[in-house]
Design a protein around this nucleic acid. Structure first.
Length: 898
RNA sequence: GGGCGUAUAACUCAGCGGUAGAGUGCUUGCUUCACACGCAAGAUGUCACAGGUUCGAAUCCUGUUACGCCCA
């Protein structure tokens, strides 16, 4: 043995070593003016809120497989990393910390709060960078971005100002989804409905100046304090006569008008509804239609304000209790029913949201959406993989609504607008304060006092610019010219609305292009029970824990192998008690198998590199098994190349697994062993082993970058700086398209011999003195003749004889069949005749059943008329073989039993 | 209410018109000089249900049931 290598692969030694190596040598940092067609994409920037989870691991590994493949295919490949400042999520984290100190952000003040936010961001960003490297992602760290860094801020301000100048950004009073926990408006998308058991309270409102009264039903009785009307259906005979009159609001004694509105459902509750325009979206619409006043009851923190009269200062849920109690006490609570209804919750804040009347900034996206929709409908830009997600994207664009882009938060891109002190909401929009003053002076002819808007922009506003701001936009940089638009966007289906559609719209508006050709959508990673992983459930599985246990490559391979390309969810195999994963363990064993097969090759190369070995032997010098493995390699490479091209990453992973384990390890390496022993055949075997290993490593590299690099380096021992990352990806070029047909029969015969050996309980190591083969088929005899040595070696047979007709007088044998070859194993001792007969009878029954089906089909005239001729020929051949096999088995059986 | 997805071996999943596959687990035999994280041999399925199309259906169509997701 020329070289000693450990018998087990140690990913924990190899992985960090190669990660450093790749980054130090900047293999992933393409020069904009370098060679090759560009292939670019951006990392969906993870939030700086701690650490990455298994969903990230999947979402990032998938495109990395594609990226590494493209880079090897010679593309000028840019995979650009970054992180997202995540306004609300960071606020949630920091405010939780502050609560533990008994403070709020308002106690701290804006400046001190932002200091904390930046400190948090630094820490979280470091963690995330470490994790991204740990995953082995081939990112270009020299171009790293952050959604809230100075360059990105410049772009965001420019975009805001431009959109405002175009009249697309405007101030509006609107009901927004108010999250009292984070004290900001959130978009519809950030609201989750939860079904909850609640009550439907029936409250009696007296009709003013009469003895009559109305009963209204509500799930939120406390909002009655903000009622400015009661609505009934205009055609409802019970209430028709009351329309236009007034009701008296209990507690506050305010008079509110009774209106008729068709939106009222006569069947629901009592058919009369209280109208609280400032606190309910439906009521807001009714209020607008009938010109009802809008009374805001809420303070930003969820307590009631002075409009709530005696309840001012109390929390909304306390008010509910007290209002109900009072109604009961005063006799105007006339009923309570149990009621299951949907309560909107703030995704981030985790509390029920309140519809809240406030001033917000809106972006009119209707025009942008229309252009994006046009690109999709007429040119299929972008193309979705899998295609069906395009429908989700399209539906969203069709039903598009104005986008509320302001958030009442501090951490984020502050809105570049300054309000004029003492005015009714007048403002100027400018790049900075100096410009704002200048604009104001120009407009008003005198200096005015300005106060900058306190709010920041929705995080998705800056994220939507990510594909081009990362490349330097608004500057016309070289990167932007070369790498934009991106080729690929890889992300989860859950942010098609949040992100993909908005990126498309913003890119359309500011670059005139759809920002990426293809959107590759991946599914969710679910836990071992098939449930969504979430922080609140605490059922997450930490990718770091998996990598610590099995190595990065094993985790990567597992995640990708589980993906079929259909955007299906991935259920992560995991034992919560032991912290083990059978699936990742299987991948680790695969890695170890590759390591050991490589180790075998390396130990037998006499320190020669593939280059020194001079490539493959001359075609004429190739043995049958050489031609077979090269053919299989060619088929495999062509298949994988084609599959990766269409993002069938999981299928390709499986194809490679079969080639490596079943073909290369189980058959070719075994057959190479005797050749390596003999001086005259050693060199040829070395050449083929080295060449196949080299190509196999390159095929493997996208999935298992570290392992493939480790072995590739051992194999090639490059003097300079070389890496498998930049080697050409095998395409099967120059390799045979077919395999020698004799090989399959050889495999069958070997299996039959092994089967008989197991049946006769001959230990695997004992060499069989003799095995007799017999076939009436000349082609089969020729094939066996060509593969005698292989059969003898793999079957451990001393003497292999081949005849046309088996010796009729053989006794004490075990018999089997491969193709129509009789396989006869003479045994020294006694044969269990009954057991052998049973075994043969079972095979015979199975065979007869199968040939029965085939015969029936071939007897069917419409089959012969309609089925492809090739198939009919094949079926006939198959049937003939099955019949011959059956005849052999029947004969053997007869001989045994007489 | 609208849309989408999934039901295949004990488990996790491939296959998506031409006689049912893998990994894990299970049974049996092996420490064979690449690998016991291994080798060899095996057992295991009315491909959810009901119709239809077809010479032929896990595969295409229709409906049903169950589970899951998205939108309103």
């Amino acid at each position: 043995m020329a070289r000693t290598l450990p018998s087990q692969y140690d990913p924990f030694d190899a992985e960090p070593r190669w990660q450093r190596f790749w980054e130090e040598h900047r293999f992933f940092s393409p020069a904009a003016d370098g060679p090759g067609k560009p292939f670019s994409l951006v990392l969906p920037p993870p939030n700086v809120t701690g650490s990455l989870h298994m969903g990230h691991a999947l979402c990032f590994t998938l495109p990395d497989v594609v990226v590494r493949y493209r880079r090897m295919k010679g593309f000028k490949t840019l995979w650009l990393p970054g992180t997202d400042h995540a306004s609300i999520a960071v606020h949630t984290v920091l405010e939780k910390q502050l609560r533990q100190e008994g403070k709020t952000r308002f106690d701290l003040g804006r400046e001190a709060f932002l200091e904390r936010a930046w400190a948090w961001k630094e820490q979280s960003q470091d963690t995330i960078r470490g994790q991204l490297r740990r995953l082995g992602l081939s990112l270009d760290w020299t171009r790293e971005s952050f959604t809230l860094d100075e360059k990105r801020n410049r772009a965001v301000v420019k975009v805001f100002i431009d959109l405002h100048r175009k009249g697309l950004i405007y101030r509006g009073k609107s009901l927004v989804n108010w999250c009292p926990a984070s004290q900001t408006a959130v978009s519809d998308l950030e609201v989750d409905d939860k079904e909850e058991k609640g009550h439907l309270w029936q409250l009696r409102y007296p009709v003013a100046d009469s003895d009559e009264f109305l009963v209204v039903a509500t799930t939120r009785p406390e909002t009655m304090l903000g009622d400015t009307g009661v609505a009934v259906h205009p055609e409802d005979p019970r209430y028709k006569h009351l329309i236009g009159r007034e009701a008296e609001l209990p507690i506050l004694g305010r008079r509110i008008v009774i209106v008729g509105d068709e939106a009222v459902d006569r069947e629901f509750g009592t058919g009369a509804v209280k109208v609280t325009p400032a606190h309910d979206p439906n009521d807001f619409e009714i209020g607008k239609r009938h010109g009802l006043p809008m009374i805001n009851l809420l303070n930003p923190n969820g307590t009631y304000n002075e409009n709530a009269g005696p309840y001012a200062g109390l929390d909304r849920f306390v008010v509910r209790k007290q209002v109900v109690a009072r109604a009961a006490a005063e006799g105007w609570l006339v009923g309570i029913e149990d009621h299951v209804h949907n309560v909107p919750y703030s995704e981030r804040g985790g509390v029920p949201i309140e519809p809240y009347l406030s001033d917000q900034w809106f972006l009119d996206v209707s025009g942008m959406a229309a252009r994006v929709l046009e690109a999709f409908d007429s040119r299929n830009q972008p193309a979705f993989v899998p295609e069906r997600w395009g429908k989700v994207y399209r539906d969203w664009l069709v039903r598009i609504r104005p986008w509320n882009i302001s958030r009442q938060l501090w951490w984020g891109h502050r809105i570049p607008a300054w309000f004029v002190a003492g005015s009714e909401g007048e403002y100027v929009v400018a790049h900075d304060e100096a410009e704002a003053f200048a604009v104001a002076r120009e407009r008003y002819g005198t200096d005015v006092q300005l106060q900058r808007d306190q709010d920041v922009l929705d995080t998705w506003f800056s994220s939507s610019l990510w594909p081009f701001t990362t490349l330097g936009w608004p500057d016309q940089t070289e990167d932007l010219g070369v790498f934009y638009p991106n080729v690929l966007m890889s992300t989860g289906f859950d942010i098609i609305f949040f992100w993909v559609a908005r990126m498309a719209m913003m890119a359309g508006e500011f670059t005139g292009q759809i920002p990426f050709e293809t959107v590759y959508i991946n599914g969710l990673v679910r836990d071992e029970k098939g449930q969504k992983m979430s922080k609140t459930k605490g059922n997450g599985i930490d990718p770091i824990e998996m990598m610590d246990k099995y190595g990065t490559d094993a985790l990567r391979y597992t995640l990708v192998r589980e993906v079929t390309g259909a955007g299906q969810d991935v259920r992560f195999d995991y034992n919560r008690k032991t912290g083990e994963s059978g699936a990742v363990d299987a991948s680790k064993r695969f890695a170890n198998k590759i390591w050991n097969a490589s180790r075998f090759v390396l130990m037998n190369l006499d320190e020669w590199t593939p280059g020194q070995l001079g490539g493959l032997p001359e075609p004429g010098a190739l043995t049958l098994e050489d031609r077979w493995i090269l053919g299989r390699l060619g088929q495999t490479a062509r298949q994988i190349d084609q599959m990766l091209g269409r993002y069938a990453l999981g299928e390709a992973a499986r194809v490679l697994y079969e080639f490596i384990w079943d073909d290369f390890c189980d058959w070719y390496v075994e057959l190479a062993k005797p050749r390596l022993e003999a001086l005259e055949t050693r060199r040829g075997a070395q050449q083929v082993l080295a060449a196949v290993l080299d190509q196999t490593l390159r095929l493997l590299h996208p999935w298992m970058p570290h392992l493939s690099e480790e072995i590739w380096q051992l194999l090639h021992q490059p003097d300079g700086v070389a890496s498998i990352c930049l080697q050409p990806f095998p395409t099967g070029e120059g390799l045979p398209e077919t395999v020698p047909p004799e090989f399959a029969l050889m495999q069958q015969v070997v299996r039959a011999i092994r089967n008989l050996r197991a049946f006769a309980q001959v230990p695997p190591l004992r060499t069989l003195p003799a095995v007799r083969l017999a076939s009436r088929n000349a082609e089969e005899r020729a094939a066996i003749d060509a593969t005698r040595q292989a059969i003898a070696y793999l079957g451990r047979v001393e003497q292999l004889s081949l005849e046309e007709v088996a010796d009729e007088h053989l006794k004490q044998v075990a018999v089997g069949v491969a193709g129509t070859v009789q396989v006869i194993l003479p045994l020294g001792g006694l044969v269990d005749v009954a057991a052998l007969a049973g075994k043969i009878r079972r095979s015979l029954e199975k065979l007869e059943k199968e040939s029965g089906v085939l015969a029936a089909r071939l007897g069917n005239e419409s089959y012969l008329a309609n089925a492809p001729a090739e198939l009919v020929t094949e079926s006939r051949a198959k049937l003939a073989e099955q019949r011959a096999q059956a005849a052999i088995l029947a004969e053997q059986l007869a001989r045994l039993e007489n």
